[in-house]
């Protein structure tokens, strides 16, 4: 009984819409100004509906799109490194190791401990080994410390005992960057010779001498400098947003074995 009342009311509403639509069509066919106004209103409504529909469709494709973008990013980074390496070859007549970037998603991340870590969704079957560096476009993330078939554990840069070989833009001074242990965006650059000038505002990036991280990855900005006459220390504000990490890149050095052999003198 209740359903038939609802159906009757729905039928009345639909009939009203149909009759008004016929009236509007008649009006739009006869009145020039009304035709343009009605057509304009219809087009606006259509565009809004199409935009909403497209937005909903895009939303469901975001995950796949993100994966595609991450893969493209890896490829572009490798291409960029190849160009940089070729440029250095021309300038210095030196061979530099190639890098492969493997995109990974962060499954777990800690930032509020003294020794923080991450779990990524790549493992042995993806070619991951312990000792590989992990980066993003914002800077260094950490170093792979343990690997299983499908996942790996990364010791975060925000851990005691972790450090990165860094250089200061402009002066080219080299030092060691390590976490201060308190705020996740503050680090300390040490072991800079005192005679090399370092100023607030200088950019700090990876030196490339660690055989873990490629050179030129931006790490942070110098905020203050202090010196004891022998060496200079600089406080650095990190670019990396550790609490917002979702997609990272694991760095594999393609010529790692040969370089290790050279390091060991064999």
């Amino acid at each position: 009984m209740r359903n038939s009342g609802f159906i009757a009311r729905l039928g009345t509403i639909l009939l009203f819409i149909a009759l008004e639509t016929v009236s509007l069509l008649l009006i739009s066919r006869s009145g020039v100004v009304q035709r343009y106004r009605i057509a304009g209103a219809l087009r606006s409504t259509q565009y809004s509906l199409w935009k909403t529909g497209t937005g909903i469709g895009h939303y469901f494709g975001y995950r796949r799109e993100n994966d595609l973008l991450a893969d493209e990013n890896c490829r572009l980074r490798e291409e960029l490194d190849a160009y940089k390496a070729a440029e250095r070859d021309i300038a210095e007549n030196k061979t530099v190791g190639d890098y492969t970037y493997i995109a990974a998603t962060v499954l777990k991340n800690t930032v509020n401990r003294q020794d923080n870590f991450l779990i990524l969704n790549r493992g042995e079957r993806d070619g991951i080994r312990t000792g590989m560096g992990v980066i993003t476009s914002g800077g260094v993330v950490g170093i792979v410390s343990a690997v299983d078939q499908t996942r790996c554990r990364v010791v975060s840069f925000l851990s005691s005992g972790q450090s990165v070989s860094a250089k200061v833009s402009g002066s080219g001074a080299f030092g060691t960057l390590s976490w201060l242990g308190r705020s996740p965006d503050k680090a300390l650059l040490t072991e800079i010779p005192a005679h090399i000038p370092v100023a607030a505002g200088d950019t700090v990036s990876t030196s490339g001498y660690s055989m873990i991280f490629p050179s030129g990855i931006p790490l942070g900005e110098v905020t203050s400098v202090s010196s004891d006459g022998i060496s200079t220390q600089a406080k650095v504000r990190l670019f990396q947003q550790f609490s917002a990490l979702q997609h990272v890149y694991i760095v594999r050095i393609n010529a790692e074995e040969e370089i290790r052999r050279l390091e060991n003198g064999s």
Binding site: L19, S23, L24, I27, R29
Partner: peptide
């Protein structure tokens, strides 16, 4: 609707106006 449309046809106005308002 029918009365409005009839009125529209028999006057010099824009067809559909009386029909739409009457509906």
């Amino acid at each position: 609707f029918a009365l409005g449309l009839l009125l529209d046809i028999m006057t010099d106005g824009v067809p559909g106006l009386h029909a739409g308002a009457a509906t």
